[in-house]
Design a protein around this nucleic acid. Structure first.
Length: 280
DNA sequence: GCCCAGGCACTCA
DNA sequence: TGAGTGCCTGGG
């Protein structure tokens, strides 16, 4: 991967395993707009345009400093995805097909607070609706970045939120879960020092945070790539290809994924999730 | 009008 | 320890 300053942004070349559409549409994040190879995202208090062609990707507006301090990490650009894909492909035929179709996926490193709340909101909800609710919350509590474009609010910006205001954002029954997360008196950044199991146990003390929400937060913002979040889709596809279509418990799937994929379970999960979602 | 969605809490056996 | 049920909301 190479990158140079180009006009008001960054031009990246010599990359592999990067498809901006796949990265954003694979369900790990919710604040993106656009289609095909032309998107913008809102993350880390910034709005960033991403335009991808066959051999170039433009990030605008973007300074070298922001690219190096935020976006390289956010897009996980220093990780060797070719190696990961090779290992996963050799472990299973269907996974090989998923990797072949969706090899442009990368696991984002998102802001922990935003990620946690986003997945609390995601429960029993559809993606377009999740995006709307997050947008509403950002508009009501977040800082305006540019025209009609708002950063996701920090925890301190949400400290004055009440159930009524959150309900007005269309959060529904999740409003009290969000309040519980706001009042959760543990600094998420400080949790980074703990083991995955310990972080998970802490996160699950928050009302509205169960297995799946905790796992998504761990994978998409704590960089715990050994985690294999299981939602209805991943349960379905896992049962289909690893359990001969038999109905098994989440626990059994977790144990299986841990054994089969180890440190790469999270990557396997993303390829499979995108694969099953786009099948049919 | 009815059903259900990328879960979770709560209840009851 | 596991199964069953209700939940805001909006789109089909």
């Amino acid at each position: 991967m190479r990158y140079v300053k180009y006009k008001d942004g960054i031009k990246m070349t010599d990359f592999n395993s990067f498809d901006i559409g796949q990265i954003l549409e694979c369900g790990q994040c919710f604040r993106f707009f656009g289609k095909e190879n032309n998107y913008f995202i809102i993350a880390y208090g910034r709005k960033l345009n991403i335009i991808q062609s066959d051999d170039e990707i433009f990030f605008t507006p973007c300074s070298i400093e922001d690219f190096e301090n935020i976006w390289i990490n956010y897009f996980d650009l220093e990780r060797d995805y070719l190696r990961i894909k090779k290992i996963l492909s050799s472990s299973d035929n269907i996974l090989a097909e998923a990797v072949n179709l969706y090899g442009g996926i990368r696991i984002l490193q998102q802001d922990k607070w935003e990620c946690l709340l986003s997945f609390i909101i995601s429960q029993n909800n559809r993606i377009p609706q999740i995006k709307k609710v997050i947008q509403n919350i950002s508009q009501m509590f977040g800082t305006e970045i540019c025209n009609d474009c708002f950063a996701f609010p920090t925890r301190s910006q949400l400290i004055n939120a009440d159930e009524k205001k959150l309900m007005d954002c269309r959060t529904g029954f999740r409003a009290k879960y969000i309040l519980d997360a706001i009042n959760f008196d543990i600094d998420l950044e400080k949790l980074s020092d703990f083991s995955t199991a310990d972080i998970k146990q802490k996160l699950m003390q928050i009302k509205g945070v169960g297995n799946k929400v905790a796992d998504c937060t761990l994978l998409f913002s704590f960089g715990r790539h050994e985690v294999y979040p299981i939602d209805v889709w991943v349960k379905r596809v896992s049962q289909e290809i690893f359990f001969d279509n038999k109905n098994v418990s989440i626990k059994q799937i977790h144990e299986f994924a841990e054994k089969k994929f180890g440190e790469l379970a999270g990557f396997a999960q993303q390829y499979l999730f995108h694969y099953i979602r786009n099948k049919v």
